[in-house]
Amino acid sequence: MAKLLLDANLSWRLVAKVKLHFEDCLHVDSIGLTIPAKDVDIWNYAFASHFIIVTNDEDFLDFVNVKGFPPKVVLLRTGNQSNPYIEQLLVKHKADIQALSESKEYGVLELF
């Protein structure tokens, strides 16, 4: 099962809702990094702990392009949206996120 790490640009309130569909889901503010966490520290934590980073931040796309993967990234291309919208988007694409988790070829999933 895919393990999701929600970036700081997403609400920590999403964790409880997303955990109903993705058992392992954490928010970056709860993993012991400095707040605000640096992107490189989030990247390193996700790498070491086998998480997929869920973010609106294109900097993580740049990391994948430069460093490769893992960790893998779900890049939300939705602009600012409500928590219920983001939750529904992740649930709708649960199979795609799981496929990303298992893929040896792909490191990024963009959701629109």
Rank of each mutant, 00 (worst) to 15 (best):
H27A: 06
I97N: 01
A37H: 11
A16D: 13
L4A: 02
A8V: 15
L5D: 04
E58A: 12
L89I: 13
I97P: 01
L61F: 12
D62N: 13
D96V: 10
G79F: 09
S49D: 06
F22S: 02
L89A: 08
K104E: 03
F60M: 06
R13G: 11
G107E: 03
Q98E: 15
L75V: 13
K104S: 12
F69E: 05
L76F: 07
S82Q: 14
A48I: 15
K92E: 15
N44H: 10
L20V: 15
E110F: 12
D57E: 09
E23H: 07
F22G: 01
V54Y: 03
L89K: 06
G107A: 11
K104R: 10
K104Q: 05
D57R: 03
V28E: 02
L14G: 08
S49A: 14
L33Y: 11
C25K: 01
A95G: 08
F47G: 00
L26T: 11
N83T: 14
F47S: 12
Q98S: 07
L14D: 03
V15I: 08
A95Y: 09
L10D: 02
T34Q: 02
F47Q: 13
L90C: 06
P36F: 04
A2M: 10
E87Q: 13
P71E: 04
P70T: 10
F112Q: 05
E58R: 09
L76M: 11
C25T: 15
V91T: 06
V64W: 06
K17N: 12
F63H: 04
H93S: 05
K3F: 12
V40A: 06
A8M: 09
D96K: 09
S103N: 11
Y45N: 01
L10K: 05
V15C: 01
V66E: 12
S11K: 09
P70A: 00
R77K: 10
F112W: 09
K19V: 14
K94C: 02
I42M: 00
Y106D: 05
I31C: 00
F51Q: 01
D57F: 04
V73G: 03
A8G: 14
I35F: 12
W12T: 15
V28F: 03
Q88D: 09
L61E: 01
V64P: 00
I42W: 01
L5A: 06
N80M: 12
Q81R: 12
L14H: 04
Y45V: 12
A2I: 11
D62K: 13
L76T: 07
D62G: 08
E102G: 11
L109P: 06
V54F: 03
L4W: 02
V66D: 11
I97F: 02
Y85T: 15
S103Q: 07
A2Q: 03
I52L: 06
E23S: 13
E87N: 13
L76E: 03
V18S: 02
G107D: 05
D41E: 14
D57L: 05
T34V: 11
E87C: 05
T78V: 13
D59E: 09
L100W: 03
